[in-house]
């Protein structure tokens, strides 16, 4: 049984006097215990809103969340707010993109880590602080005893992100959701943080949902990858299948449009024409159709269903990129 089973999750934003906007449109995916699942897409594809909806962190007003988010046996969307608070931070940890805005600037770091332990495990302040020191040490923060008394602004970006990971992992959650955890960091620091995440996940058996726009990050980390476009999953596959043999024209185009450090240089990059503004609604066909190179008549008119593929993934396309025949 999957640890997390997201079924038909939709998030519709609506304000008085404006047209409702469907940010997440019947997204389904599952995470097995210990598995690393990637949600990949460009800005506006709904990947962050998905994670916020799973955690119940969307603002109470102005949006409608439907579907199911089953974590083991409970539907997180049906929990009362106080019950959800009990699970958040204990069963599910979360790491956000910008560590400076997710840490409280006026509270010393030690208390911010200890808070989680006090709240969820009923530890005393002293015991919690002692454990916090061990946690900071585990995520590779040098001189943790001193750092406990420091404030977030005294730490570097990489160190802050490590602290955030320590907080997220304090209660040994079974699921960790990381929303662009390395986007705000430099490449050498990114490499450190990714190595740390990989090590922690391997050691503790925590399942990880990795949300990112960076295909390179996904390639090295995720077991299964979901590619999102305009609020829907358009392709799902194991990472080797996805990168070796992308079937959806969007995935294919994305992979071809990133310059690779190890490929031959020069020449023009493949480009996907137009921008996200050119989409058509999913109800009128494939949202990607206006930008797609492989568009055929069938792409427009009816919603294109997400269908399972022979390699265990799923694909939402009427005219997929032909499968490469192994030579």
């Amino acid at each position: 049984m999957p640890l997390l089973d997201v079924r038909e999750l939709s998030v519709v934003f609506q304000r008085k006097g404006t047209k409702p906007f469907t940010a997440v449109d019947r997204v389904s995916f599952a995470v097995e215990p210990g598995e690393t699942v990637g949600l990949v897409g460009e800005s506006g594809c709904g990947k962050s809103v998905t994670s916020l909806a799973i955690m119940g962190l969307l603002p109470r007003r102005g949006n409608k969340v439907t579907g199911e988010v089953r974590f083991e046996d409970t539907d997180l969307l049906k929990l009362r707010p106080q019950d959800l608070r009990d699970r958040r931070g204990r069963d599910i940890g979360m790491i956000f993109q910008d560590p400076l805005s997710s840490l409280n600037p006026v509270i010393p770091l030690g208390l911010q880590v200890a808070e989680v332990l006090e709240r969820h495990q009923g530890k005393t302040r002293q015991a919690a602080l002692r454990e916090a020191r061990g946690l900071l040490d585990a995520v590779g923060i040098p001189d943790p005893a001193r750092r406990l008394k420091e404030f977030p602004h005294q730490l570097s970006g990489g160190m802050r992100q490590r602290a955030l990971i320590a907080i997220a992992l304090a209660c040994k959650p079974r699921l960790l959701i990381a929303d662009e955890p390395t986007t705000a960091l430099d490449v050498t620091v990114q490499a450190q943080i990714l190595a740390l995440l990989k090590e922690l996940v391997d050691q503790s058996g925590t399942a990880l949902v990795m949300i990112t726009h960076d295909l390179g990050v996904v390639a090295g980390l995720c077991d299964t990858v979901n590619v999102l476009y305009a609020g829907r999953v358009v392709e799902r596959a194991g990472r080797h299948a996805l990168f070796g043999d992308p079937r959806h024209p969007y995935t294919h185009g994305l992979l071809q449009s990133v310059p690779r450090l190890d490929a031959d240089r020069g020449g023009r990059l493949h480009q996907i024409r137009g921008s996200v503004n050119d989409n058509i609604p999913w109800s009128e066909g494939c949202a990607f159709a206006p930008r797609c190179d492989r568009v055929v008549d069938d792409c427009i008119g009816e919603t294109v269903p997400l269908e399972p593929t022979s390699r265990g993934g799923a694909l939402r396309c009427t005219n997929p990129v032909p499968q490469e025949v192994p030579a």
């Binding site: 490449v187 295909l215 996904v218 390639a219 090295g220 992979l255 450090l261 190890d262």
Partner: peptide
Amino acid sequence: ALLSAVPIPDPWVED
């Protein structure tokens, strides 16, 4: 170090 830290969108290379 910089070159080795850049992620490459290719699982075989990354592994």
